[in-house]
Amino acid sequence: MTAYLKIDHVDKTFVRGSTETEVLKDISLSIDHGEFVSIIGHSGCGKTTLLNIVAGLVPVTAGCVLLENREVNEPGPDRAVVFQNHSLLPWLTVYDNVKLAVDKVFAGKKSRAERHAWTLHNLDLVQMTHAKDKRPAEISGGMKQRVGLARALAMEPKVLLLDEPFGALDALTRAHLQDSVMALHLKLKNTVLMITHDVDEAVLLSDRIVMMTNGPSARIGEVLDVPLPRPRKRLELAANQTYLKCRQRVLEFLYERHRFVEAA
């Protein structure tokens, strides 16, 4: 069987003047339809570069990315991104931020009324309908991230790309949003690729965890299956043996075998 999303022998080298930096080396990864995959690694290992390659925002140096067996090399709404710092347009209201995406993606496919309804539906999915007429500056960080998620979901992407979506949030808000993402994944069965540096987050949310070695020339060090049944409950998992074992494996990888060495 061919994979839904396939990252095939991707290399990425950044060239600035005469210095070349190899960031990613021979990355291959296959993701099935509806799968939730996390990529974890120390900062600077090229996780975000990999996500940007899948998003089409950064071109590959070698190799390719295939989505449903077709090469993707430029950005598009079939691979919607939830950016680390929400990236909402501050001059638009919450509603208009989502509507901008809906209007662009469904121009000609949905009527005006349908687009309006679809915008509201997606705001409702992330429980943000109450703030639809507010501007991003008037809502909290967690709410902004929810709206960013609604905007991405509203594009009906084939793959949802999450770039450390909860990184800038406090622990309680983060937990709340993780639960929301889990619930949405269960409901919508999206294929999700998430970048994270939080071990608990990776184990809790993912079907598989891709662990990356330190850069430069970062590779995939190990891929771990998380055989926990869904729906998952944060509290029940805290004492679950499988959960703890997975957590242990990731921690060992990150802090024993590939400890982060400060660049000299």
Binding site: A55, G56, L57, E74, P75, G76, P77, R79, A80, V81, F83, N85, S87, L89, L100, A101, K104, V105, M155
Partner: peptide, 18 residues
């Protein structure tokens, strides 16, 4: 213009005029 906004525009495939 922040790169974030440019990225949003790219993902949405906004044309030059938009």
């Amino acid at each position: 213009i922040p790169q974030d906004y440019r990225n949003v525009a790219k993902v949405l495939r906004l044309n030059q005029l938009e």
